[in-house]
Design a protein around this nucleic acid. Structure first.
Lengths: 100, 100
DNA sequence: GCTAAATATGAATAGTTGTTCATATGTATA
DNA sequence: TATACATATGAACAACTATTCATATTTAGC
């Protein structure tokens, strides 16, 4: 498996972002539908400030994208690749659970 | 996307492990063939001690598995799921590169 | 413009993590 | 058993990160 160093670093940065449970939960919350920040706060059970900090990191890495609508900002997973990859991995984790 | 908290934590722990470039490089080095620790040290350009520390974490998370043969210990990615998932993501990163 | 609602930002901090250095353990061969 | 080789471990530390608290910004409606 050959990969250039900068691509490897880029990839590891994405993994690092997914490597925090709170942030992962935030991403999963808006994986398949748009969600306002407030809704994400409620669903993720994290503070408003923390959610906002994490969303900024996810945004910077293009893992989510925002859409403004009046006072609300809707977030959603950035693209299909992210959606598919994460769904696959979750399914895998859940299948393993069955085997135990 | 519904997922139990402990599964989410488990998943984020895997991502966290992949989230360090040195460790990711180590894993990729033994993704498709068995490699001795020494070979991994050379290929990853990290110190013997550091490689060993990282291998321990990867082992504990069942991302790699060791096989002893005399004085050498061969490591390899633990299973096909890990191999496939990582190969897919690397291909994706490399395709994105082409588009820029 | 003023107020309330929704979201973002900055500073501060406690806890974690990657790395190094020195040393230990295990294994083969002489 | 002594020596060399291969790998693992433990302590120590600097750098980083998640979180909180307080405050700022943006927007809508009055």
């Amino acid at each position: 498996m050959q990969i250039k160093t900068d691509q490897l670093v880029e990839l590891s940065e994405v993994f690092k972002l997914l490597g925090d449970p709170t942030r992962l939960r935030i991403l999963l919350t808006c994986l398949e539908q748009e969600m306002t920040v407030g809704e994400i706060v409620t669903a993720s059970e994290a503070s408003q400030s923390l959610v906002s900090h994490h969303l900024r990191l996810l945004r910077a890495a293009r893992l989510v994208k925002p859409r403004r609508e009046g006072r609300h900002i809707y977030y959603r997973a950035h693209d299909d690749h992210i959606r598919c990859t994460l769904k696959d991995m979750i399914e895998h984790v859940q299948e393993e659970e069955d085997m135990v």
